[in-house]
Amino acid sequence: MDSSAIVEKYFPELNAQQKAQFQELGNLYAEWNEKINVISRKDIDHIYEKHILHALSIAKFQNLSGKKILDVGTGGGLPGIPLAILFPDAQFTLVDSIGKKIKVVQAIVDALGLENVNAYHQRAEKTKGKYDFVVSRAVTRMKAFIHWVNPKIQSDNPNDNSGIIALKGGDLEDEMAEIKRMYQEVPISKYYSEPFFETKKIVFVPF
Rank of each mutant, 00 (worst) to 15 (best):
H46Y: 01
G77R: 06
T127R: 01
R123T: 06
A90R: 14
G113C: 04
D89C: 08
D156A: 13
L78A: 12
T74A: 09
I39L: 11
I58S: 09
A90M: 09
T127Q: 05
N63Q: 11
F87T: 11
M142T: 04
P82A: 12
G77P: 00
V134M: 00
I98L: 15
K60H: 11
A107M: 12
F61N: 06
K143M: 06
E125C: 07
K126R: 12
E49N: 02
N63D: 15
Y48M: 06
L86C: 06
I146R: 00
R137P: 00
Y120E: 00
E125T: 08
Q122Y: 08
K42A: 15
S155V: 03
D132C: 13
V104R: 06
T93V: 15
L94G: 08
D45E: 15
W148H: 04
H51T: 02
V135E: 03
K128R: 13
K68Y: 15
F145W: 04
S57R: 10
A124I: 14
G113D: 01
H51F: 12
P151Y: 12
R41K: 14
K60Y: 09
R141H: 14
I98V: 14
A55T: 03
F92S: 02
M142P: 05
D110I: 00
L83Y: 07
L94T: 08
K126S: 13
H46V: 00
T140Q: 14
N63S: 15
F145C: 00
W148Y: 15
L114D: 02
I39S: 05
V105A: 02
I44H: 10
V117Q: 05
L78F: 15
G73W: 14
F145M: 00
E125F: 10
K126C: 02
R137N: 06
V134Y: 07
M142Q: 09
S155E: 09
P79K: 14
I69W: 11
K68C: 10
D110C: 01
